[in-house]
Design a protein around this nucleic acid. Structure first.
Lengths: 328, 328
DNA sequence: CTGAAAGCGCTAACAA
DNA sequence: TTGTTAGCGCTTTCAG
């Protein structure tokens, strides 16, 4: 038995090249000997790896695990693995991690860390690295992406509050250098106008991070400014969590004194006090769709970029109610 | 310039073998050319990989991200990476994932999926694969592990409830084929006796999974049996979450009608209604300690297994209060 | 359909 | 201190 023949017999793709009988004999013997192909040697020869890199800003954000699931569930059956890295929202770390993924011959990347201006991503595209963005996009629209339909989501949230009778709604705007922060902010302003609500710019508080602390800080700022408002749309659930901290701190009764809407509907958010009304993003589907897209791109050399917007639904819970005119 | 010399100059470990001046010249040129060593070729040659495998049952459990962080923070500076896999609590999947990690030449494993009887882990040990267990252990005590001091944690929880005046305390026992489930169960019984509390065996409900649904099912079972009890110690926070679902379902006022204690103090559990009293496990430290242990084991060929128990603290929140004699 | 031969990029042993 | 040589385990031409 000659190694080349064995190799052909063991690789499903080249199996047809070899006599059916020899093939099955090889497979049987390999089985008996407990032979395991060495993917490293294979990688070295073929410069492929059956692996894709997954670049996450922060795994401790409960948003990401379901996305990772979605990705793995699609990649696995296709014979691919995901190599996961955490950037901690640090551009240098991101650069070196992407480097290390590339030197390990990952065949493509799924990136959840996009900022609107993102030189690294432009470079990857220029160098022809197959990349799919998730959650956030860059200003450069040529990169394929799978994101939520943020604008519609915010519009739905505003409509919900308007229906309840709110007229002065505040917004905790996420970082404006991320597509999600910017799109949600703009959609918020647009939706206020569409509903003829007060679009007082002072009711928009900028957050520099997607974090609980920033959410708390921003809400305090609005309250301390003595502005009148009866509801808040937080740029995401973490910012909304910060609002809950302020409620506890200042004895604010939610939803009687103030309604809050979050964004993402992350796990466990339904167990808060009160359960948070939030715009649900189908995280698992974001992951599975992105993985499918990347596999397509890997298979078809002249695949062309698409951007998928996944639909959102507003999950109404107890953090929103009609405004309490006597208090606000 | 000869490739072997360049190789020696670029590898910090062999750098001393080469003339200082040539070395820095090589480094400079490599820099200018944007040379990136190919870790795959290196792996093939050296059969090392600077990588360890991390075997997690379910990444969507918020317990794990902080552990992963702890591991990466120790591994990174030592020049190692972690390759993370999800088993979904499926033994077959686990087997094939561990296989794939090994064929990728991981130098060691950190395993969070241990069951008391765990043939795969015994085999790994027999084959000399460097392995550190976290969270749970096997019956085979020879495997090094980093776990929480569960018994003391449960004793503290029982003491807390006893101090509040509870005398009939129920336990939602986690899967008895895991060390955590078994140890907590036994510690619970022991602690009841130490405090002279009623150790009615009917007050212990077995859960077959560490899940919210199982927690809910088990608590319903206890309530439906018409047993009298004023507090519950859940085997972990997910089981405790299930209790919250039953409270909502049946209009039970926690902590007035029933006190609950969780275990793990997982992220966001402090935001529940009411905030959950829980035994805090230092997850980050579990990860960092395990990573340090594994690095030690990799460096020192005749390293001997140790097991580390990390201390726990009870975090008192609003889910526990004195029993309400008139209702219970 | 199968065999022979070469080489992916790197490093370790040995020689100079 | 540097050069030479060989080979990690696999796949893929090319020839037979």
């Amino acid at each position: 038995m000659h190694p080349a023949t064995a190799s052909r017999a063991l690789n499903p793709a080249t199996r047809p090249l070899v006599n059916g009988e020899t093939a099955s004999r090889v497979v049987r013997v390999a089985e008996r000997l407990g032979y395991r192909p060495n993917p490293i040697a294979r990688s070295l020869k073929t410069s492929r790896s059956a692996t894709v890199g997954l670049v996450i800003p922060d795994l401790t954000n409960p948003l990401f695990p379901p996305i990772v699931r979605g990705i793995e569930d699609v990649l696995g059956p296709a014979g691919y693995n995901a190599w996961l890295v955490n950037t901690d929202n640090d551009a240098d770390r991101e650069e070196s991690l992407v480097d290390s993924l590339r030197s390990r011959q990952v065949e493509g990347l799924i990136v959840a860390t996009a900022r609107l201006q993102h030189p690294l991503l432009d470079r990857l595209q220029a160098e022809g690295v197959r990349t799919v963005l998730i959650n956030r996009r860059t200003a450069n629209a040529n990169l394929p992406s799978v994101t939520a339909d943020d604008a519609t989501g915010i519009a739905t949230a505003v409509a919900h509050l308007a229906d309840l009778g709110h007229r002065r709604i505040a917004h905790l705007a996420g970082p404006q250098n991320t597509s999600t922060g910017l799109v949600r902010h703009r959609a918020f302003v647009q939706a206020l106008r569409d509903h003829d609500l007060d679009d007082d710019p002072r009711l928009i508080a900028a957050c520099t991070l997607w974090s609980e602390d920033e959410g708390a800080r921003a809400l305090r700022e609005l309250l301390d400014a003595g502005l009148e408002f009866t509801a808040v749309i937080a740029g995401n659930d973490l910012l909304a969590l910060g609002c809950y901290d302020v409620f506890a701190e200042r004895g604010i009764d939610c939803p009687r004194d103030l309604s809050v809407v979050g964004f993402n509907d992350m796990p466990f958010i339904d167990k808060l006090r009160p359960p948070l009304t939030s715009v649900r993003v189908p995280h698992y589907e974001v992951g599975s769709e992105a993985a499918r897209m990347l596999l397509d791109a890997l298979q078809d050399p002249d695949w062309h970029a698409r951007s998928v917007l996944l639909p959102l639904t507003l999950i109404r819970r107890q953090s929103t109610a009609p405004p309490n005119r006597t208090v606000a």
